[in-house]
Write a protein that binds this DNA or RNA. Structure first.
Lengths: 354, 354
DNA sequence: GAGGCGTACTGTATCGATTTAGAGAAGTTC
DNA sequence: GAACTTCTCTAAATCGATACAGTACGCCTC
């Protein structure tokens, strides 16, 4: 049987409380007795107060839970997500708090709900979840502080927002394309359709997209295009199932292998945009000359490959999220943090070639 | 006051146990009563059993703890570490288990010990810690399963090893350099010295290094060099404080800006090796011609830049670690997993120029 | 030597659940 | 109709700690 506080207390002949104090409040007892207690504990193989029992009593877990959209392991393949995690980890570390990455199987939503309900945490951080996901309701029900990068109807007093003005960001990118004279434009993004397929979607309006980020970004493009006289009905939107380079290339194929091909392709993430560049090169097309490409995120690879993109502060987003979660502001106004973004024009955009 | 099982039980007029059963063992009560309980719970804003109390009673946390060497946030800047984490996350996800990243401040060891003692987890995974770190003792004292990539004296029956034959890996790399005729060789690595400085170390023997990985890799080089007739006393070893490209370049400066410079530089990680390449280029020296460079890890960037390096399966290491931790093998022989490595010869190594 | 005060420790209640043994009622079998 | 199941549900014990009120006792003061 594993030794407990009581075991040690019995061995030394003191009360359980005193043994507890020996560990947690050394000033509450004489140094002599404390030494006797600790050495008895060592003899018995007692490793110190059980963290679970302590958490229960203290009503504090010492960790924050992180909920990702796709599978957890996916988070480590996406450079943007890694940066975000890095910022979050910094904030957690600063506060001497752990970071619990919740398992979130893609197939089974109830598993995600169970993960939320079983998480021993003091708060949640939500990265990129579809609005309808039941795990979000489970989080709300837990009654713990939540920070997310997506606004959502019914956000309670414990929830905060740390993010960017997604629509404004793509509005700037779209205006850039319009100014260059592009009129046959297309958009590639993840989670545009519910089904995990690669190909054009039938999307009457950006409002139909279930993911906050993709929806807002799409809306920004819609508005910018409209301002340039391009009706949304003429814009092809292509879905990619995963945020990866290969899928981006495959999606681009749907646009490039049919006439007339678009003169500009906007991708909702850099990874996908880089895939588009791959597809262009595979066809002997020159990015920025034959077809313009815009990304989103500004990951390091984007700079290396000269990708025009929207810069957003990934690590800051994570860090601010963590900070807000760990010391929730009293003033409701401080519960919304909108970080700046800016368009970075590089080599992959240029004047439209008719 | 937050509602508990008792609150709900009182409202419905049943016992606490029955409410518990309504959530955890639906077959133990009539469907009718269960519905009444759940709806009462919903009315009261009760979100279901408290995870901490449940963990205490069940003696299961539903998470595994991850302990990294440097600061937690560092883990997200190192491509190798990210791959490792990805593998670990996959295994955790498969088992529907969370992954708790422990805060581990570099300055304050006692904070790391506290983090270990406060971690509500079912086991620990150790990535790269110095042998002397007190957190390792704290982990051992917890009496939970541990998987690490470093062998350590006093590993108990609950500990397992998943790693590579570090020394054999660098022995192969060293033999490669010897075969190319290099005799003036140097090694750059992190954690070679205790002090976090950039510069040559006074290292009588690889055995003096506190980190398992660096120590073993260094030993492999020592053996390979000895086989080529190069005495260890003629080998300059240079320490880098962080595993980053800039520090690698700065460390290389110590070797390149003095005569005679080495004809080959072995780095204990790819990141550092890439920094060495930067330093070479900054001086107009050609990697593989003027100076040969070898890395370790085989991260994606290594391939892109033509770096000769030792390939090790990063994600596999993480995945196998997770698997071993989540279902500990009964047979002690299965508690040691040594994954294969191989030398990848690319463009940064070539015949020695006298 | 009565009163006041600080130190060092004890004992009990509490945190919020799960588990086990078993009570009581209803139905089944011989 | 006695014996046996089966189905529901309950009471009490348990998990391992912390918080807090309370007590014993020595010391100081006047």
């Amino acid at each position: 049987m594993r030794p407990t506080l009581q075991t040690v207390a019995d061995a030394v002949g003191v009360s359980r409380s005193t043994v507890s104090n020996a560990y947690s409040r050394p000033d509450q007892l004489s140094g002599d007795l404390r030494d006797r207690i600790l050495s008895a504990a060592a003899d018995l193989g007692y490793a110190g107060p059980d963290p679970t029992a302590r958490s229960l009593r203290k009503r504090r877990a010492g960790a924050i839970g992180m909920l990702f959209t796709a599978s957890l392991s996916f988070a480590f393949t996406d450079p943007y997500a890694v940066q975000y995690l890095r910022g979050l980890a910094e904030a957690a570390e600063q506060a001497r708090t752990g970071l619990l990455l919740l398992p979130l199987s893609d197939e089974d939503e109830s598993a995600a709900v169970a993960a939320v309900n079983d998480a021993v945490v003091d708060g949640f951080c939500v990265y990129c979840m579809p609005d309808w996901h039941p795990a979000l309701d489970a989080i709300a029900a837990r009654g713990l502080p939540v920070v997310s990068g997506q606004r959502r109807a019914g956000d309670g007093p414990l929830s905060a927002f740390v993010g960017i003005d997604e629509a404004a960001a793509t509005r700037a990118a779209g205006a850039h394309l319009m100014a260059l004279g592009h009129r046959r434009v297309a958009v590639i993004g993840d989670y545009l359709s519910v089904a995990p397929m690669i190909g054009p979607t039938t999307l009457a309006s950006p409002a139909d997209v279930a993911y906050y980020g993709s929806r807002e970004r799409l809306r920004g493009y819609q508005e910018a295009f409209a301002a340039g006289g391009v009706d949304w009905s003429t814009v092809t939107t292509v879905n990619v199932p995963g945020n990866c380079r290969r899928d981006g290339a495959a999606a681009a194929a749907h646009l490039l292998d049919r006439a007339p091909r678009p003169t500009a392709i906007a991708a909702l993430s850099d990874i996908v945009a880089l895939g588009v560049l791959d597809a262009l090169r595979a066809r002997g097309l020159r990015p920025g000359r034959d077809v313009s490409v815009v990304g989103f995120d500004d990951i390091p690879e984007a700079e290396a490959e000269g990708l025009t993109t929207v810069h957003q502060p990934a690590a800051d987003r994570g860090r601010r999220s963590g900070e807000l979660l760990l010391n929730p502001p009293t003033d409701p106004a401080d519960r919304t943090v909108v970080l700046p973004t800016h368009l970075v024009v590089r080599a992959t955009t240029g004047p439209a070639q008719s």
